[in-house]
């Protein structure tokens, strides 16, 4: 009987790393998204903050998309 501990550890390490990267980035994106209701917003300062928040969220979602596209290439490449 031959247990491939290295392969097992590799599968665990890689999937843990990729999953945490994706989920953390996506959660940051969700958390960074500016509130839609706009309650308490107004003035130049919060307008700037709004833009920064939107940019952060978009960046996070794009990173997740990149991971998904990489996954897609793995699936298609077989």
């Amino acid at each position: 009987m031959d247990i491939h501990w290295a392969a097992l550890g590799g599968v665990f390490g890689v999937s843990l790393g990729i999953t945490l990267l994706t989920v953390v980035l996506f959660s940051l994106g969700v958390a960074a998204q500016p509130r839609d209701d706009g309650a308490g917003h107004g003035g130049a300062r919060s307008h700037g903050a709004h833009r920064t928040a939107t940019a952060t969220a978009v960046l996070c979602f794009c990173a997740c998309l990149a991971v998904a596209v990489y996954g897609l290439t793995l699936i298609i490449g077989g």
Partner: peptide
């Protein structure tokens, strides 16, 4: 077991990171 541990940690982080986010917004995003 591997999938369970990975998903457990991922779920934990997802909730920690979005704990100050409006529940509605988080639900829509996820």
């Amino acid at each position: 077991l591997v999938a369970c541990v990975v998903a457990l940690l991922a779920t934990y982080f997802a909730y920690v990171i979005t704990r100050r986010t409006a529940p509605d917004q988080a639900r829509r995003g996820f």
